[in-house]
Design a protein around this nucleic acid. Structure first.
Lengths: 142, 142
DNA sequence: CAATAGTTTAGAATAATTATAATATATAGT
DNA sequence: ACTATATATTATAATTATTCTAAACTATTG
């Protein structure tokens, strides 16, 4: 469990107190190879599966939002009904599988650089996110 | 009111019964020059402002979703908390003003063509949406 | 180890959306 | 035009997602 020291450190550096709950959530979110796309609900479910303890939903919300504010998580643009978060905070894009409602990372290198010729005057561009919606080829979507 | 005939026709062609409520909603949505970005709530508010009648919220939901299914409206990808719809159903992209929470159309011509080199196997691309988040230049967002 | 500032928690409150079931309306067939 | 039937609308209830609240708890500082 040497990794938990990293999480405690990580939280401290962001000015967040390393509470038990936050460290646990860190373990679930950041102890993994590939990036993790999730809704608050997904995460809450994972917590009760992988941990034996239960963390209050309100705390999950608070923690995720705290992590997002500190840049440890990124909120992803998807059609409005749910809020998705992403542990991959580098600039990248997404495929959204409309059949399975799954989100898949799309490497920035898989898309030729995007050149925006016209910006809103007086504003600066904070981010450019591409969402590529895909679906099974032989399936008719009505 | 010659325009209402168009709406009745439009609804009929989509197999939707031209009810009073649907025609009214058509008037509000499609009797305008520039595209209209809205949440269900925005639309409901507009209805009670511009019309003297009141249409049940459930009907507004049903109608908007029926229109979306028929391709008269497009749902737009934004960070999860709200569902936005767009009367502009042509391929185009959006600026999202994080200061004002306003959505502005971005013409496809203002962005150099996007070339996606790697698709998910067995899937076909249904749409490619770009969201450009902007904010005031001299304002610090924490 | 005590004080305090920040955190967690259960549950209430709010907001967004969908379901329900009764009533009303549009359409097709006469 | 009239009636039967299918579909739509409505108010309200139910559901789901999210935020707020106030009390109990915990990490940090001195």
């Amino acid at each position: 469990m040497t990794k938990n020291f990293n999480f405690i450190d990580k939280l401290r550096k962001a000015g967040l107190r390393p509470t038990k709950q936050r460290v646990k959530i860190c373990e679930i979110l950041f102890n993994r190879e590939k990036t993790f796309h999730f809704t608050i609900n997904d995460l809450a479910k994972k917590i009760s599966e992988e941990l034996n303890e239960k963390i209050s939903l309100a705390t999950v919300y608070n923690t995720v939002h705290a992590f997002e504010k500190k840049g440890y998580l990124k909120e992803i643009a998807i059609n409005g009904d749910k809020s998705y978060f992403d542990t991959n905070i580098t600039a990248h894009h997404h495929f959204y599988d409309e059949d399975t409602h799954e989100l898949i990372d799309c490497d920035q290198n898989d898309i030729d650089s995007i050149n925006i010729k016209n910006n809103i005057t007086g504003k600066k561009i904070n981010s450019v996110e591409i969402l590529i919606k895909v679906a099974s080829d032989n399936q008719n979507q009505n």
